[in-house]
Nucleic acid binder design. Structure first.
Lengths: 134, 134
DNA sequence: TGTTTGCACTTGCAAAACGCAAGCAAACAT
DNA sequence: ATGTTTGCTTGCGTTTTGCAAGTGCAAACA
């Protein structure tokens, strides 16, 4: 997915994160703020190591995530969302709301979405602010 | 993308429409309400015929779109969004808003997003209502 | 200080998905 | 009756995916 298929905003977006794994990586970073390579591998979907490496690189190249030195060790690498990545929070929330309506989802997610529905704009704004703090 | 990877709402959503083409098909139906097989092929991204057939079938199986008899001819088939598909409008809008911030997008889309930003909830509600009318 | 462990990737290879081109059957138009 | 349109299907080469094993460097351990 390297070249642009059209100038449609949806198409261009999909060219960046429209695959099976990228949004899951972004999801993990939205919940955790900072993760190591190994942390991503622990996600329940079970991404394989080569795919993860490729996706992390592409997301970094597209400016959605960035690498960070780990404070404890040079052997570890931290990944976090950039502003461009954080700006996907509204998309992520809407996906969750859609999924809640049509799938069976975990209780903790349901609880989160209950909060979202009380004040969607407020929830999103607060979440994004928190992510920007680091 | 046949089996469920996890019970995460994002993951489950991606299992349904998380490929390179599905959201573009849904986009086309949101703009046009009803389209024939041949109409989809005219989209600027240039989906190939076998992929289109596969995606249409999967989207129908997942209940996002449905087939409809064409009033003019038995040789033609009409596709349109179901309620489940129409409910993706908020996701689609947020994707457009994100893309507008980071990509160069066509003027007509920009004009549409200007309307969106005046009253997002109102725009979405009206758009979904219009789609439900048929 | 030598060795083992942990972490972040690479590499090899088989399987699946993709994508172009051609083909095909059922309407439909003339 | 014949040619065209429409909605797919089929073949086949290329690309992407996914599992498993391997590599290199840093830290921890003995």
């Amino acid at each position: 997915m390297k070249s642009q298929r059209s100038d449609c905003p949806v198409s261009q977006s999909l060219d960046v994160w429209g695959d099976k794994w990228s949004l899951l990586i972004i999801r993990d970073l939205m919940f955790a703020k900072q993760l190591t390579y190994g942390d991503f591998l622990k996600a329940p979907e079970g991404i394989s190591t080569n795919i993860l490496a490729t996706r992390l690189l592409q997301l970094e190249e597209h400016g959605l995530i960035e690498k960070l030195d780990h404070p404890d060790s040079k052997a570890k690498v931290l990944y976090r969302l950039t502003g461009k990545g954080i700006d996907l929070v509204p998309v992520m929330i809407e996906i969750n709301l859609w999924a809640e309506k049509y799938f069976t989802i975990p209780a903790d997610r349901k609880a989160m979405l209950k909060e979202v529905k009380k004040d969607k704009d407020g929830f999103i704004k607060a979440g994004m602010k928190e992510l920007r703090k680091g």
